[in-house]
């Protein structure tokens, strides 16, 4: 057992564990690099105001990314988050004159949870690939949004509602605070609760998880429900910030969300990932967008850089992490 002692001493020595952590969370290295580059390139970048902007801008995709991370560690995917967001946004504004602000918000949340539950149940019961189930939902839920809004943007009537989003704690907007709080909370769920550990076990080795008595179906339904609920949270925050509900709100956001999560390092095949990685991915994406805009680069650069970075991340992941797999 000489090998055993070397391995364990490696992972307990502080230097070794820092290296290991960085190898598994290389997104933070990348985030630091981008921050350094943009700080040098633009005097407006590293200011409190701009950082505050980045946090708020990143937080919307970030909240979606939290749910997506849960689902993805399970080895599944949810393409319907953008549409769920739009529905929650529309309901929370549209119902205000009828039942009041907070009940409307509650109904918005409920709609997200219900649709997530439907997705999860369909995946678990039918055995269909979640890509298909949620692709259908993406199309259909957008239809629901249009049925409800009738193609028009809904406007908020009670302007006190939009002021909720203007609550700041220092440089942190309510949205940013909520994102960070939720991310930390779900990191705790992942690392410290039965449900969280089940998520890894299911995504990692579904046979072993099943043999160990984990109820895989119920587990997946819960994660899809969480993902839908978080999408609704995002939609409600958007409604507070904008004061309007566009029927096309959140279109293609599911793609940005997947990009952020994968960029962070969470593996699409499941079993591997964390909220830390996702936070890194979300902020890297936000910094890239913000920095490139500050530099007055045309917006095509942003899109092209994003595509290139994503492929680079994939190649890096293949080179770094798949060594040990075989």
């Amino acid at each position: 057992m000489t090998d055993a002692t070397t391995t364990s001493s490696q992972s307990t020595s502080p230097f070794g564990s820092v290296i290991q952590w960085l190898l598994r969370n290389h997104i933070w290295v990348f985030l630091a690099l981008t921050i350094v580059v943009f700080s040098l390139a633009s005097p407006y970048f590293l200011t409190v105001k701009n950082m505050s902007n980045i946090l708020t801008q990143g937080a919307f995709i970030g909240i979606l990314a939290i749910g997506m991370t849960m689902v993805m560690i399970d080895g599944e995917i949810d393409l319907s988050v953008g549409a769920i967001l739009a529905l929650a946004c529309a309901l929370s504004i549209g119902l205000q004159p009828v039942i009041g602000s907070w009940p409307a918000v509650f109904v918005g949340l409920l709609s997200g949870a219900a649709l997530g539950f439907v997705n999860g149940t369909l995946v678990a019961l039918s055995g269909m690939h979640s890509f298909i189930v949620t692709l259908g939902a993406l199309i259909g839920i957008r239809g629901l949004v249009f049925v409800y809004t009738g193609e028009n943007a809904l406007m908020v009537e009670d302007f006190a509602y939009t002021e909720i989003a203007e609550v700041y704690l220092g440089p942190l907007s309510l949205t940013a605070m909520l994102f960070i709080a939720l991310a930390l909370f779900f990191q705790w769920i992942l690392s410290s609760t039965r449900h969280g550990r089940e998520t890894y076990a299911v995504g990692d080795n579904i046979e072993a998880a099943h043999d160990a008595g984990i109820n895989v179906k119920r587990h997946k339904i819960i994660n899809f429900t969480l993902c839908g609920t978080l999408a609704a949270v995002c939609g409600i925050l958007l409604s507070m910030r904008l004061g309007t509900a566009e029927p096309n709100a959140g279109k293609v956001w599911e793609l940005w969300t997947i990009i952020a999560v994968v960029l962070g390092g969470t593996r699409l095949q499941g079993g591997y990932g964390s909220m830390w990685m996702t936070i890194g991915g979300v902020f890297t994406l936000a910094v890239l967008r913000n920095g490139l805009r500050l530099l007055n680069t045309p917006n095509y650069v942003e899109l092209m850089v994003m595509g290139a970075v994503l492929i680079l991340a994939l190649v890096l992941d293949k080179a770094l992490n798949h060594r040990g797999d075989h």
């Binding site: 609760t193 039965r194 550990r197 089940e198 890894y200 076990a201 990692d204 080795n205 046979e207 072993a208 998880a209 043999d211 160990a212 008595g213 984990i214 079993g271 591997y272």
Partner: peptide, 19 residues
């Protein structure tokens, strides 16, 4: 029948973790 991403302790008690 182990989950490679989980710790040794979590694998020993896989699915029957004390909570």
């Amino acid at each position: 029948s182990l989950s490679p991403e989980l710790s040794v302790a979590e694998n020993i008690y896989l699915g029957a973790w004390p909570t």
